[in-house]
């Protein structure tokens, strides 16, 4: 079962970048790429040679690898269809979140190692934004723990579906909304960051990897695709009860991942990028919405009774 979970994420990761790109192309009236073009690009990168900056040190060589290893291990924690992931224990979401923080640490020092002002700028923004978005994720998890009384991904997801109150579906809807927004921030997409930007001064994620090439860049891009699939999985699991037949769950899962990718494409097509200076405000807003979620759980579970 754990193997199936990993397989599903791999499948999703392989097609999500393509779907996003196709969606955006269709909406802007272009023909667009084929579905597997991003995958082919990555494969080509793995075969290529590297160009290293003479400023860089040992750190630049090892960080892309550790960055990818961290994302890969993080996806082993994800449950699927009510079954636990390969790694599952009480409090596994903490390990998951901190592992992703580890990967960010690696990518930031990777960028700083080049001694470039542009990459420093991107690294610095990445550090600030990921620090700010962290409370939103933890508030959602705290609300889920409060609602279900369990502390691992699998148990939490299993009990969200069968809460006593039908309000838990409303809760799931708000959580999904927040997770989509968090995914946009964490994956450096609009409105916080724009992967299509052409100016180093306004880039965040793209500018951090300007000096990476070949195998290393391939790993970073694979990691990015995985990260998308990871957030898609977190969203999809709200809709995969254990009681459904497996085939149905696989179908629902793939549809959700597809919808997630299309949503990202839609959002990117019709949304303007934030002013850089307004980004912190935007991200903190996510945490406050998550706080509203927490309070509503307090009310749902009749702990905080308002007259």
């Amino acid at each position: 079962m754990a193997a199936l979970s990993i397989l599903m994420i791999l499948i999703s990761a392989a097609v999500i970048p393509g779907i996003i790109s196709i969606t955006k192309a269709k909406l802007s009236g272009r023909k667009g790429i084929t579905l597997f073009q991003p995958l082919k690009d990555i494969v080509r990168l793995f075969r290529k040679g590297n160009v290293y900056s003479t400023t860089t040190s040992l750190i630049f060589q090892i960080t892309p690898v550790i960055h990818f290893a961290g994302i890969f291990c993080a996806l082993l924690f994800l449950p699927f269809s009510g079954e636990a992931g390969l790694l599952s224990f009480s409090g596994d979401f903490l390990f998951f979140a901190y592992l992703l923080a580890f990967t960010k640490f690696m990518l930031i020092i990777n960028a700083m190692d080049t001694g470039s002002g542009f990459e420093g700028m991107g690294a610095n923004r990445e550090a600030l934004y990921s620090m700010l978005v962290e409370p939103a994720f933890f508030t959602i998890m705290a609300s889920l723990v409060l609602l279900t009384g369990f502390t691992s991904f699998q148990e939490v997801y299993n009990n969200v579906h069968f809460g006593d109150s039908s309000l838990s579906y409303l809760f799931a809807a708000v959580s999904i909304y927040l997770l989509v927004q968090i995914a946009m921030v964490e994956n450096s997409r609009l409105p916080v960051d724009d992967p299509r930007t052409h100016l180093e001064l306004t880039m965040i994620h793209e500018v951090m990897v300007l000096d990476n090439s070949g195998f290393d860049l391939g790993l970073i891009m694979t990691g990015n695709a995985f990260k998308f699939a990871i957030y898609g999985n977190l969203i999809a699991n709200f809709l995969l009860p254990q009681s459904f037949p497996l085939v149905a769950n696989i179908a629902i899962y793939l549809v959700v991942q597809l919808l997630f990718a299309v949503t990202v494409g839609l959002l990117e097509s019709f949304r303007a990028r934030n002013k850089i200076a307004n980004n912190p405000q935007f991200i903190i807003t996510l945490s406050s919405i998550a706080l509203v979620l927490f309070f509503s759980v307090l009310i749902i579970t009749h702990k905080l009774i308002l007259d």
């Binding site: 075969r47 590297n50 900056s53 400023t55």
Partner: peptide, 11 residues
């Protein structure tokens, strides 16, 4: 593969 060295990308 071929590994090359050069200065950091300076825009």
């Amino acid at each position: 593969v071929v590994v090359e060295y050069g200065p950091t990308w300076g825009c």
